[in-house]
Amino acid sequence: MNWLNPILILLAALLAVFFESAFAGYSNLLLAKVDLLPMLMVYAALTHGLFTVVTLAFAGGLLFDSLSANPFGASVLPLLVIGLFIYYNRGLLLRQNTNAQFFFGLFASAAAPLMTLLVILALGESPLLGWGSIWQWIAMTVVGGMLTPMCFRFFDRVKRSLNYEPVAEQNSFHPDREIKRGRY
C-alpha cells in the first residue's frame, strides 16, 4: 500500500480545518463558514481505498470538533456516511468529469452539515439555528461544490509530482509492422 497518499490527505484535512478556523475573515463577506472536509472526502472516496476514507472521516471529524463547540465526534459519522456512499457507488460514477466532481462536492457539502446537525440535536444540544441558517447552508453547498473540482486538480498535480511514474520505453517496435509468420 502506498502510504504517501493517505498521509497527504490527512495533512490536507489538518490544513483545511486550520484554514477554516484561523482565517475566518471571509465569513464576514459570505455570512457563512465553508466546510472543506466534505470536499476532501469526495476526493478520497473516489480515488483512494476504504482505509483512507475511514481514516479521513475519523481524523478529520475529530480535528474539526476539537476547534468547535460541537460534541466531540459529532462530525465523524456524517463524513463516514458520505464517504462510504460515494466509495461503494464509485464504479457507476464518472469520477474524471469536472461536472460530476462538482455535483459530488455539492451533494457532500449539502449533506454533511445537515447530518452533523441531526447528530448534535439528537445529543440534546441547542445550536444556533434560524432562517439565516438556510443561507449559510446554501453558501456552504455551492462553495463546496465549486471547490471540489479544484481539489481534484490540486491533488492530481501533487500526486504526479510526488509519486513514481514508470518512464515509457522508447523502442522502434510497432505492432502494425509485425511480420506474422506461419499459416493464417
Partner: peptide
C-alpha cells in the same frame, strides 16, 4: 487564534 469552524456556534 481561532474561530469556531461551524456555523451554528
Amino acid at each position: 487564534i481561532a474561530h469556531d469552524p461551524a456555523n451554528w456556534w
